[in-house]
């Protein structure tokens, strides 16, 4: 327990001093702010594009457009940034050998994994919440209101997907060695899930739906019930990934 607390503190210090926290917070905040703005400006942007002969009529943007933008940005660029920021957290230490001394001091290998996962999920939660609150604020500023149907559940789904991804990153770091191996493996896992999503019978369970169906939720095209299966599989897979990481890391050569 002592080791876990000490190592978690070290993780936070690392995130701050290696600018990981700064990067993540800045980027997610920008997405939170830019999404409602982009939605609001869409008609202006389109009207300034020279379109010959055709006149496009764009409906007046609504709050829903703002949130659709938010989820689009977050689930794509946001997730990529999370991947980039956290993908090396374990593998880099293994390659460099910085874990040798703490472990020789009696730090348990479980504590390494759990500290890293805990610290990364706290960062993700904090910066994501900040982005969400920012988006609420600016949506309110631009549209006069910010609430949308299933908004909170939708936000939760994407958060859970992020938490799942962080667990995948952790597992990838224990399986593959090298600086970019973990990143690559996580990307492959993501690609496979996206590919599998084509099959309608499976996609009910696919974690990817948590990041892709947010807009459908907002537009009332899907209900909370439609996504509950995916929520549970994602949660189970997250726990599974963590348990596997703990087991595999125990035998990892340092």
């Amino acid at each position: 327990m002592n080791g876990w607390i000490a190592f978690t503190k070290k993780e936070f210090m690392e995130q701050l001093r290696s600018y990981k926290a700064l990067t993540l917070i800045a980027v997610l905040f920008l997405f939170g702010m830019a999404s409602p703005l982009l939605a609001k400006m869409m008609p202006v942007i389109f009207s300034q594009m020279p379109v010959q002969g055709i006149s496009i009529t764009i409906p007046k943007p609504t709050i829903l457009d703002a949130w659709v933008q938010f989820f689009k940005n977050m689930s794509q660029m946001g997730i990529i940034v999370v991947l980039l920021v956290f993908s090396g957290t374990l593998s880099r230490e293994v390659t460099k050998g910085t874990l040798v001394l703490p472990i020789s001091k009696g730090l348990s290998r479980n504590a390494v994994i759990l500290s890293k996962y805990f610290a990364s999920i706290i960062s993700w939660t904090f910066s994501y919440a900040l982005a969400g609150v920012t988006a609420c604020g600016y949506t309110f500023y631009l549209f006069g209101r910010f609430s949308a149907p299933h908004l909170f559940f939708s936000l939760f789904c994407l958060w859970l997907f992020g938490a799942f991804l962080l667990a995948v990153i952790m597992l990838a770091g224990t399986v593959v060695s090298g600086n970019y191996g973990g990143l690559l493996l996580t990307a492959v896992v993501l690609a496979v899930m996206l590919a599998v999503n084509v099959f309608p019978r499976i996609n009910k369970w696919n974690p990817v739906t948590l990041a892709s169906d947010n807009s459908s939720l907002l537009l009332n095209a899907k209900t909370v019930g439609d996504l509950s299966a995916a929520v549970w599989t994602t949660f189970s897979l997250t726990v599974l990934c963590l348990i596997l990481s703990l087991i595999l890391f125990r035998k990892k050569k340092l």
Binding site: K10, M13, E14, R17, S18, K96, G97, T98, V100, L101, I103, S104, K105, G106, L107, S108, R109, R250, K251
Partner: peptide
């Protein structure tokens, strides 16, 4: 192997010790 209890009585200095450079 893989457990670390006995390491509490040991101090270890590797040939090239690696530290966290930001500390």
């Amino acid at each position: 192997y893989g457990k670390t209890q006995t390491n509490r009585s040991i101090g270890y200095l590797p040939d090239v010790p690696e530290f966290y450079g930001y500390m």
